[in-house]
Write a protein that binds this DNA or RNA. Structure first.
Length: 427
RNA sequence: GGAGAGAUGGCCGAGUAGGUCGAAGGCGCUCGCCUGCUAAGCGAGUAUACUGGGAAACCGGUAUCGAGGGUUCGAAUCCCUCUCUCUCCGCCA
């Protein structure tokens, strides 16, 4: 399930009100009847099973089975009855599960109320927008004139929203991946993971992409696998079905993966450039934490992501999403938006969320405080650290020069073989 | 792709002519005892989920021996399907 079924049972109104703050009306009215029916069936069938177990034990003690033909016949009938009840129970449970799997997470009490994007709250800004003596160009123009991004051939190879990186462009992307991974592993204590780029249905369900958002995913033909839309999916699922030791927490993982998104419903949006691609690279940060630490850990994760931008000298702002704008599985989210002078706007480059125990509940990820204590759900968190393609966008636009070249941020130069600026190779 | 072997509790590993097996034994771990430290030794405990009762401690029921079905009064044990792992051959980065 996703939300705590017992919590809902006892706090139906509160849960409904909290879900309502997301905007999308969630109707929990069907829940109570299903839940009650389930428990009634459960009690009935279990009572019969207890009887059958007891009588079967008695039968086993009797050597001469002819003496217990009566009981055997009786139990044969009981078993038939159990079978029927179990069938009913299974269908009720399937219905209940299908219902629960499409109910979103309850927003955190800290999440500000709001209807949509417009109600998001700006938390802080860092860095100053660069000033230009000329009109700054959008990255697609810079990329094409420097001959490092080839949108036309990307479309030829695959289709719209695919891009071919060339020369320094390809190197810049790779440099950023390595720079981010090195930063998070050596300075922020994350463990690097390199997971599969496609996962099964169970993994997608555990983190919340399925069953509701199948349209956003690429599904393979022939096998029931999906291309990952984010490393969050495989990395969070690493501990699916496990009971961790309290002393292991928090667990911090970082992973580079490409991300694949169908972008269904975004036709006509961000059609130019690298902003919205079907395939893009991302370095992800994922945490498994003690519930009591999740707020603090979210702030640290956010700071770890911001650190990338600070080291690169890219101006940004942090926005806290309101209840109407947070994702399905999240209970609290901060977006980091980088300044893009070529488009004169801030664009999301990272999204850092707490999922509370929502994903842990779906995925069955628990921990034991002490040896003797009962297992309880961990909290999961994740955030981009960062979206690599959009970081390239930000560098191209913020670091562009009057002569058309792009100065590489100092922190990145060791990863670029010492290169200080990208110039037009044709000149 | 072809042939074969196997999946048991945190780990190792018993258990296949169906019954008293949630499951021997060992290791590990926890608590206590003992020992001037360490090691060894002794005793007890040590899965999860759902569910009923209880304020709680806790007590009861059901399920789970890869997953799902079947046979049976009764299945870790028999039958079927699937998944995964391992070995050999082929192929391949």
């Amino acid at each position: 399930m996703m939300l705590d079924i017992r919590y809902i049972r006892e706090n139906l109104e509160a849960a409904e009100a909290a879900l309502k703050s997301r905007g999308a009306g969630v109707d929990l009215s069907g829940f109570r009847a299903l839940d009650e029916r389930r428990r009634a069936l459960l009690q009935e069938t279990e009572t019969l099973k207890a009887l059958r177990n007891r009588v079967s034990d008695e039968i086993s003690l009797v050597k001469d089975k002819s003496q217990v033909q009566g009981q055997i016949a009786e139990m044969r009938a009981v078993s038939q009855r159990i079978k029927g009840l179990d069938d009913d129970l299974r269908s009720v449970e399937e219905e209940l599960a299908a219902f629960m799997l499409v109910v979103p997470n309850i927003p955190s009490a800290a999440t500000p109320f709001g209807l949509n994007e417009a109600d998001n709250r700006e938390i802080r800004r860092w860095g100053a927008a660069p000033e230009f003596s000329f009109t700054p160009k959008p990255h697609w123009e810079i990329g094409e004139s420097l001959d490092i991004l080839d949108f036309e051939r990307g479309a030829k190879l695959t289709g719209a929203r695919f891009t071919l990186y060339k020369g320094c462009g390809a190197r810049l992307e790779r440099a950023l991946i390595n720079f981010m991974l090195d930063l998070h592993t050596t300075r922020h204590n994350y463990i690097e993971m390199l997971p599969p780029f496609m996962v099964n249905r169970e993994s997608m369900t555990a983190t919340g992409q399925l069953p509701k958002f199948a349209d956003d995913l690429f599904h393979l033909e022939g096998v029931d696998y999906f291309l990952i839309p984010t490393a969050e999916v495989p990395v969070t699922n690493i501990h699916r079905g496990e009971i961790l030791k309290g002393s292991q927490l928090p667990i911090l993982y970082t992973a580079y993966t490409p991300c694949f998104r169908s972008e269904a419903g975004s036709y006509g949006k961000d059609t130019r450039g690298l902003i919205r691609q079907h395939q893009f690279n991302k370095v992800e940060l994922v945490k498994f934490v003690h519930p009591a630490d999740s707020t603090r850990e979210l702030e640290k994760l956010l700071d770890n992501a911001e650190e990338v931008l600070r080291l690169l000298g890219l101006p940004y702002r942090v926005v806290e999403l309101c209840s109407g704008d947070i994702g399905f599985s999240a209970c609290r989210t901060f977006d980091i938006e980088v300044w893009l002078p070529g488009q004169n706007t801030f664009r999301e480059i990272s999204s850092c969320s707490s999922f509370g125990d929502f994903q842990a509940r779906r995925a069955g990820i628990k921990f034991r405080e002490d040896e003797k204590s009962k297992p309880e759900f961990v909290h999961t968190l994740n955030g981009s650290g960062l979206a690599v393609g959009r970081t390239v966008v930000a560098i191209l636009e913020n670091c562009q020069q009057a002569d058309g070249s792009v100065v590489i941020p100092e922190a990145l130069r060791p990863y670029m073989g010492g290169l200080e600026k990208i110039v037009d190779s044709k000149k």
